[in-house]
Amino acid sequence: MANSGELEIPPKLKAVRPYLLLARDHDKRDPVVAFFCRHYAMETALALDKQDKSPDNKIFLSGLMDRLEKSKEDLRSDEILSNELASQAHVETCASKIFVYADNEDRAGRFHKAMLKSFYKSGLLFDVMQTFGELSEDLQKTRKYAKWKVTYITGCQKRGETPH
């Protein structure tokens, strides 16, 4: 399924769009993370579809499921993907790396697009980590902080203020 098809998301399922964009971001660089972003998007879309079924949803869900199964097949030999704990650790490492970069830039007072995007992406990846079960208290706090930072810095930029 072409990537573009993947992003023709029915209106009622549009909440999964950020995770599919993040998956596309990682398709080449980190297929394991891309797989779990799509997996979380699928879980979320299935839950949304339960509330409000529509033929459009079904076409989209089947297409995403096909893509997930193909990804799993393509990554058959990947040791990380075949081990749940290794997968969880891998996604957490990726999320934490992106968060630490953003946090360091923030603490150094360097406010720029890449830093904002990194807070945003790390927040999404901490969401994706819920596919492995409930987040630890620490990760829940980090996830909340990353999302709050995106809102706070975006607000400052809109008001023409310097975030502190």
């Binding site: 579809d49 339960k50 869900l61 499921m65 997930l68 799993k72």
Partner: peptide, 27 residues
């Protein structure tokens, strides 16, 4: 009855997708 049939078909499809997703993780 048609609506009912439609609804049960839709939920069967949902279940099928959920099962496929679960299998993906267990493979």
């Amino acid at each position: 009855t048609t609506a009912l049939a439609g609804a049960s078909a839709a939920s069967m499809e949902q279940d099928e997708l959920s099962q496929r997703l679960q299998q993906l993780r267990n493979q």
